[in-house]
Amino acid sequence: MTAPLYRRVPFTAALAAVTTLLAGLVVATPAAAQDPSDEGAQPLLSDVIESTNRGFVEAKAAVEESRKRQLQLNLELEKVEERLEALTPQIGEVASNSYRLGRITPVMVLLNSASPDDLLDRAEGLDMIAMHDNKRVRELNEAREQAARAVAAIEAEVTREEQQLEVMSRQKKEAEKALQLVGAVATNGFVSATSPVAAQAPRNANGSWPSESCSLDDPTTSGCITPRTMHALNEAKKAGFTRFVSCFRPGGPFEHPKGRACDFSMQSSGFGGDATGDARLYGNNLTAFLVRNADKLGILYVIWYRQFWSPTTGWSSYSGAGGDPSSDHTNHVHLSLL
């Protein structure tokens, strides 16, 4: 890549929650410049990041699903109301038939019939009118019941949305507290409207992310990764980010031992020191690509060049890093997935 694919944009507090936690995450002892196996992380903050950020993303998915459901229910209600409007005038005709025919008894039908055939014809006619009227009354009642169910379902979805928004707000506050503890500061970060668009990773029917195990062979190591990690890795390569990558590690911080994290080096092999020039640009572009496609890839957070990003808080800096390329994340982009 020869031209910048990213631009800096102001930090927005719209999606503010867990990335802030990553701020404190990077305060470990320095690691070797050639190997990010010790990226540095406070275990407690790592746990908080995992639980809070995951909770925020799940609540966000529930809100989006609830709003889709509300839209569907409102469309259904509109159709039912149109049907009610069409059926209501017909009930006046039913009432009129009832008034005109309701006092006609079998005896009157018999007395006013000139012949047995005439009697049968008149009786069948009355039955047809009654059946037609009963059908219209039944349709009206069914439409009313359907409308009532739709209204109740909409109210339930609104309540569900409000509950999930409260969850998101609570996760945001917890993340902000952690951010204050580690002295992280909101930054402009790396965002690009021209980054390639990744393919959507599989989600559950309700929009949430399925739980996945470390079930696939990691093409970058002798370990394993989850299907979602494999998808993100392949999408990044498809977008042109083909330099050295290492995903699974049996120990250490972040999601590496779970097969849910990858370190993207700025070099063709190994990791090296601080990225500059073309290597720095490569990292900027890769980070912008990951952030733009976070919803499609199921990203938990991204760390690059003393800054980190999550769906909850956007971009923030972190303080107290180890002062080396590994713990400062200046020689590789760290990607963690849900």
Rank of each mutant, 00 (worst) to 15 (best):
S115E: 11
L337A: 00
L75S: 14
C224N: 04
K172N: 06
H334Q: 13
F264H: 00
E166D: 14
G298L: 09
S326A: 12
F308N: 11
E78F: 13
E58H: 05
F289R: 02
T220D: 13
A62H: 06
A275T: 04
A153L: 13
G189A: 08
M131L: 12
L216V: 06
K68I: 06
G251F: 11
A275L: 10
W209T: 01
L5D: 04
V185A: 15
Y6L: 05
S317H: 02
H231E: 01
Q180S: 14
F11V: 10
V291I: 04
W304L: 03
C262Y: 09
A198K: 02
I129T: 15
V137N: 03
L84S: 08
V80D: 03
G320H: 13
D328C: 00
L45S: 05
E161K: 14
A261G: 03
Q34V: 09
P89V: 02
G322D: 14
S96F: 02
A14E: 12
P250T: 11
V18P: 00
A14K: 11
Y305V: 04
A59V: 11
F241H: 01
R54L: 04
A239N: 07
L119D: 02
A143E: 02
L281P: 02
A205G: 11
V191R: 05
S51K: 11
A150E: 02
A31H: 04
L101Y: 13
G125I: 02
Q70H: 11
A123K: 09
N331Q: 09
F289V: 01
E124H: 14
E157W: 03
L84A: 06
T226Q: 09
F11W: 09
L71R: 12
F244S: 02
R149P: 00
M131A: 15
G277A: 11
P325E: 03
D121M: 06
E82C: 08
N331S: 09
S310E: 00
P202C: 03
S51D: 01
R280T: 11
Y6W: 13
R292D: 02
V48M: 04
E235Q: 15
V197T: 15
R136K: 14
A14F: 10
S319Q: 14
A32N: 15
A14M: 10
P325I: 04
D295V: 06
G298V: 07
D47T: 12
R136G: 07
L179C: 13
F271N: 01
A201V: 09
D328E: 08
D133Q: 11
S317E: 05
R203A: 03
Q171G: 07
E78A: 14
G283V: 06
V182T: 14
H231S: 01
E78N: 12
H132Y: 07
E65C: 08
L120Y: 15
S195G: 12
K258P: 00
Q171E: 10
G240S: 06
E235W: 11
T29N: 13
S336R: 04
G322H: 10
D328F: 03
T242P: 12
V333P: 01
G323P: 03
Q42A: 10
V185D: 05
M266A: 13
A31P: 01
R160W: 12
N112S: 12
R170D: 05
D38R: 06
A236D: 06
L5M: 14
L73T: 08
A150P: 00
A198P: 12
V158M: 14
D127N: 07
H231R: 08
Q164V: 09
T194I: 12
R7V: 09
A17I: 05
